[in-house]
């Protein structure tokens, strides 16, 4: 079971000119096994939503609630959220110089599971995942995200999704900056995850392109810190044809 429930979420970010309100009441429920796509123009607050759910310290929740299977996510620390089953594939993954991918993955897996993975099967698992993501086996000796190409960063995020096996995955523009081959590899990775029992996905994207490979159950148009409209896959088609124009005018 995995249900992520976001209710009337209000978030501000502290800037030099004082606090700035970004999320103005977001309500969204991702039920067991569902994939939701959130689409919206740049600056509409999509990453803010993703970071707020993951607990990034820069974002301050001023109202509303987030629960995962009834547990209060907002009361948890960043790492507790991850251990509770949340995963955020970041739009801009962060470099950690000197820490190898292998070390990082093993440390994360140990933290999530509460015990170290069995050495023999673990190495095999990691290699298999890297291969599926079209990443060279020597990849695991490189420093986390350091000198990775844009595509490698995103594939590395999805490799983590596969290995860490959360309940709910939030993918923040995992598709942007990918060429078509990488997009397919990444989409296959996400689809493999979705095939597992009861996994929720919140797929944040600017473009409709990825929705050809990952079929959402629900599509939400996100404008100016709010869900402007929700619907099925047909909503994505409308966006493909007409863009965000209609929603932007409505938001003003």
């Amino acid at each position: 079971m995995s249900t992520l429930e976001i209710k009337d979420l209000q978030v501000q970010v502290n800037t030099e000119d004082g606090p700035k309100e970004i999320l103005k009441g977001v309500t969204l429920t991702i039920n067991d096994g569902e994939t939701h796509a959130i689409m919206g123009p740049n600056g509409s607050g999509k990453s803010t939503l993703a970071y707020s759910i993951a607990g990034h310290p820069r974002y301050e929740v001023t109202g509303g609630s987030v629960t995962l299977d009834g547990e209060d996510v907002l009361a948890m620390s960043v790492d507790e959220r991850a251990r509770a089953g949340l995963f955020l594939a970041m739009q801009y993954p962060v470099e950690v110089p000197g820490v190898s991918v292998a070390n990082f993955l093993r440390t994360a897996k140990t933290a999530i599971d509460g015990e170290a993975p069995k050495l023999r099967t673990w190495v095999k698992d990691v290699n298999a995942v890297l291969e599926r993501m079209n990443l060279d086996p020597t990849f695991s000796q490189r420093s986390v995200n350091e000198g990775f190409s844009g595509g490698e960063k995103k594939r590395h995020e999805i490799a983590q999704l596969d290995l860490l096996d959360p309940k709910v995955a939030i993918l923040d523009e995992t598709d942007s900056g990918l060429d078509i081959d990488a997009l397919k590899v990444v989409s296959e990775g996400v689809n493999r995850f979705r095939e597992r029992d009861g996994k929720g996905v919140l797929l944040i994207t600017h473009y409709t392109r990825i929705l050809r490979y990952i079929k959402p159950d629900h599509v939400h148009v996100f404008v100016a810190g709010r869900v402007a409209e929700s619907g099925g896959a047909e909503l994505a088609e409308e966006l493909e044809a007409n863009g965000y124009e209609r929603f932007l005018t409505a938001a003003v």
């Binding site: 310290p57 620390s77 790492d79 440390t107 933290a111 420093s143």
Partner: peptide, 28 residues
Amino acid sequence: DEQLFYLRSRGISEKEAQRLVVHGFFND
């Protein structure tokens, strides 16, 4: 903060994340 957030968002505790960052800093 961004490094620590990234590591912690993978379930790694704050102290373990700090330890990893320093380890990496020297390991380089």
